[in-house]
Simulated scan of single mutants.
Amino acid sequence: MAHARLWFGQYELDLEHRQLRHRGQQILLEPRAVELLCHLAAHRDRLVTRQELLNTLWSGQHVTESVFASALRAVRHSVRETGGHQEIIRTVHRRGYQFVADVTPVAEPKDYDTVRFCRTRDGIRLAYTVTGAGPPLISTANWLTHLGLDRRDPMWIHWYRDLMRESRRGLRYDERGCGLSDWCPPSASPQVWVEDLDTVADAAGYDTFAIIGTAQAAATAIAYAALRPDRVTRMVLISSHARGRQARARTDLDRRVADVDLDLATVAWQSADPSFLRAYAAQFLPNAAPAELDAYIAFTRRTTSLENLVRFFQMITTMDVFPLAGQVRCPTLILHARNDPRVPASNATELAALIDDSRLVLLDSANHLFTATEPAWAELIRHVDDFLDD
């Protein structure tokens, strides 16, 4: 089976294990109903006749119309669809049924990542994983990852599939406070970020390595490259910001915007109000469909506690490693969306001016987090490959 799991809207359908989940929570269906859903989804490229469903699910047994209708009704109910509102399963009168929802197939990795653990000097357990072979590369930890989930999430899988190639010995780790690392309060200290990176690099046996920092993780990458110049060979910064919104605010309006942003984030996650959550998520993925925003939100909610979510918001808005950027001496590639609404491209331009041996590439996108299907992603990967393989 090419794709054992499918994402559509807020739902995940596991074809191999015959399970349907909504925002990570399994929906219990009687066996015939889930088999019906899986058969339609697996054959979504064509119309499936009623007789085919009867032969497949009931092995040719005589089945009354009410039994078949009950199974179909249970499936529609499980995905919150009515007979008159058919965006997932469409009935074609007297011909059959077709699964018509927009689907994101998720190919299972050949081998699941082996998660390992190490302890920091202050006793915090950090989770990390190493894949591939070749020159060592570390993706510095950014907020709200989860090594047990991210390689299966449609919003994140391309970041690890395309950046952490098999030809590189790629290391990823969950930051303290989230994922499979200890859910202790996260730290806003660049010194702690640097020491945590030392811990996972030493545990993996890396002496020198390239680093990639995305979004808030760029601050960790910058601090590490500045304070550990003997270990970093090259650095890639994607959608980077060395200063949080409050830290880079210069006018009264800037400060008000930063305060509103923090309030929106806090209220959205504490209230779980979908309208607030989507408003916040749309800053990262402004061109995303509502279902994609919901998938991003659902993943984020599974990565840490609500208390730590709020702490991360507060930490990110006040972080500032801008002064350290001028101390970076390794070759650096900076990639940024030209129309990023979350972190304006001017921040990347300022950063490039501070780092001597740097090159800046502005990509035609409005997403802070690049998606797999937009042209800018393929261009980003080409630039990263050229830079790291140079």
Results as ranks from 00 to 15, higher is better:
363 L>K: 07
356 D>N: 06
277 L>V: 01
256 R>K: 13
339 N>W: 10
309 L>V: 06
341 P>S: 08
314 Q>T: 05
288 A>V: 00
340 D>N: 15
284 F>L: 15
263 D>E: 06
312 F>S: 05
319 M>Y: 07
273 D>A: 14
276 F>H: 08
336 H>G: 11
294 D>G: 10
282 A>N: 11
305 S>A: 06
351 L>Y: 04
325 A>C: 11
273 D>P: 02
263 D>W: 07
332 T>S: 11
353 A>S: 13
311 R>S: 04
323 P>F: 04
359 R>W: 01
344 P>H: 03
301 R>I: 04
322 F>W: 15
358 S>K: 08
329 R>A: 13
326 G>I: 00
353 A>R: 15
334 I>H: 03
257 V>Y: 06
306 L>Q: 12
297 I>F: 03
368 H>F: 10
328 V>R: 12
336 H>V: 00
318 T>N: 07
370 F>H: 14
347 N>T: 09
370 F>P: 04
323 P>L: 00
262 L>C: 04
282 A>R: 15
281 A>L: 01
359 R>K: 14
353 A>K: 14
272 A>K: 14
303 T>K: 12
370 F>G: 07
364 D>F: 00
285 L>I: 01
313 F>H: 14
327 Q>C: 03
348 A>R: 10
278 R>Y: 02
262 L>N: 11
281 A>M: 13
274 P>G: 05
292 E>L: 11
355 I>F: 02
274 P>I: 00
261 D>F: 15
294 D>R: 12
314 Q>M: 05
298 A>N: 09
273 D>F: 00
337 A>Y: 09
357 D>N: 15
308 N>H: 04
284 F>D: 07
333 L>A: 06
340 D>C: 10
320 D>Y: 05
